[in-house]
Design a protein around this nucleic acid. Structure first.
Ligand SMILES: NC(=O)c1ccc[n+]([C@@H]2O[C@H](COP(=O)([O-])OP(=O)(O)OC[C@H]3O[C@@H](n4cnc5c(N)ncnc54)[C@H](O)[C@@H]3O)[C@@H](O)[C@H]2O)c1
Ligand SMILES: NC(=O)c1ccc[n+]([C@@H]2O[C@H](COP(=O)([O-])OP(=O)(O)OC[C@H]3O[C@@H](n4cnc5c(N)ncnc54)[C@H](O)[C@@H]3O)[C@@H](O)[C@H]2O)c1
Lengths: 216, 216
DNA sequence: AGGCAATCGTGATGAAAATCGCATAATGGG
DNA sequence: CCCATTATGCGATTTTCATCACGATTGCCT
């Protein structure tokens, strides 16, 4: 199965994710087994050429006049993005945001299972959060090695972020999904994806305060 | 005060936000009133030239051999991004994620105040979430017009997203911070900022499954 | 069967973003 | 008081990303 593996860029990966979501659930009553690049593009507000380029980048070919096989696209994206090989993650910092993430069922559709949550707060340890027992961070390292965890979700306060990261790295974690507004320092073999939610405010505040001035 | 107003691009705005956060809290024991572009760049993992370009874009000038006045940078960014003119927002969908956002105190530092939350769930209406009473969405439109609300935070399930959006638009909302994984259709005078959290998974899953193959 | 219309693939083009290189300015030490 | 040092500012360059343009392919219709 000739899926090309030419180091996909971040934006391509994100668009592939969007294609996947659209095809696997997005289009309501659309029984057609085939889908055109224009249809995807319209729904997602992307240029059709872009869609074709992206699909081409993972080795998918469409047929003139017909389009692409929707199932084939889904299957290919699942394989390329790795949704087919479920991976387990630990979540550190079972606070407000951590709880929301743990409660979010849809992640499992993308292969992610949050298998344990850790916290330092004595009032939380031992109790259930989103159906899972919160554990003491003292047991974090051993849990990671014991269960061969590769991904950590970081939702602690900013102050604890780097310290926790160092422990995660020492325990052999391979990737971190960082929700704290900090740049984490990690060795080059550890991959960090930052999800800096509040950056959105820069754009929103800017637009709100300049709307009148800038005309639109 | 010569703050240039040349339509800043999204990435510039986001970096300005990061500079602001770094300067206003980030650097711990660093009493120097002056800061160099290299110092910012190091802390934030950005190219120093980029920092200078960004600061130049909002009319800030540094001094050779000295750098920039940290306070002046903060002040300028506050003005440009509009943190100094606090704005009020409504949150629609007081679920897990909505609760986390409402509980997040730091937003007020950037001028954002979530003044009310709305939901359709009878078990939530009337109760407190993060210290604020949840209201029925029936009262949404009137609340928006009555309090002159310009921004809405959208954290409903996907199915409700477009319907809620239409009502927000009809009520005269000017901007939407959208946390649902959907493309919202809005008239051109309404600004939408998407915060598609789960897109991060595309990159994470990809790296986790290809780490061994691709050699980092 | 043959032309028509829709759709794809891809090289060329253009726009945006990041980075480089170097002249210039300010500072502090000798 | 001058010079070496350390920053800046900005034009030039490179890289990345998105869009356009067009030839090729395929199914559909008559
Ligand atoms: N809540 C939001 O909407 C939001 C938005 C943007 C960014 N963030 C960021 O996400 C992070 C978490 O935010 P939150 O609102 O959930 O905060 P929170 O205070 O509700 O949760 C933090 C949790 O981390 C735990 N914790 C503290 N130190 C720890 C440690 N050393 N090891 C493990 N756990 C520890 C705390 O006990 C608490 O349960 C913060 O860094 C915040 O800046 C949150
Ligand atoms: N929780 C996460 O970590 C996470 C991550 C990524 C994306 N999201 C997205 O954020 C959104 C909210 O997620 P959540 O986990 O908080 O879900 P949730 O089910 O916990 O909360 C949704 C809330 O919206 C309310 N609601 C439903 N219909 C409504 C309507 N028409 N008007 C007003 N309120 C309505 C529900 O009563 C509920 O309280 C979803 O679209 C989800 O896809 C969440």
């Amino acid at each position: 199965m000739g899926l090309r593996v030419a180091r996909l860029r971040r934006l391509v990966l994100e668009r592939l994710m969007r294609y996947y979501r659209f095809l696997s659930e997005g289009r309501g009553r659309r029984p057609a087994p085939t889908v055109t690049s224009a249809e995807i593009a319209d729904a997602l507000d992307i240029d059709p050429t872009q869609v074709r380029k992206d699909l081409g980048a993972i080795g998918l070919l469409g047929m003139g006049r017909v389009g692409f096989d929707a199932c084939e696209i889904c299957r290919a994206i699942r394989i390329v993005l790795g949704f087919d090989q479920p991976y387990h993650a630990v979540l550190v910092g079972a606070g407000h945001l951590g709880t929301a993430l743990m409660a979010y069922a849809r992640f499992s559709q993308y292969g992610l299972n949050v298998s344990a949550a850790f916290d330092t707060d004595r009032r939380k340890i031992g109790h259930l959060v989103a159906g899972r027992r919160v554990r003491s961070t003292r047991t974090l390292a051993s849990y990671i090695t014991r269960h061969d965890i590769r991904l950590a979700i970081l939702t602690t306060p900013v102050e604890a972020a780097q310290k926790v990261t160092d422990r995660l790295v020492a325990a052999g974690i391979e990737a971190i999904w960082n929700f704290t507004p900090t740049r984490l320092t990690v060795p080059p073999n550890v991959f960090v994806r930052n999800e800096h939610i509040s950056l959105g405010l820069s754009e929103l505040a800017y637009h709100l305060t300049h709307l009148d001035v800038t005309r639109r």
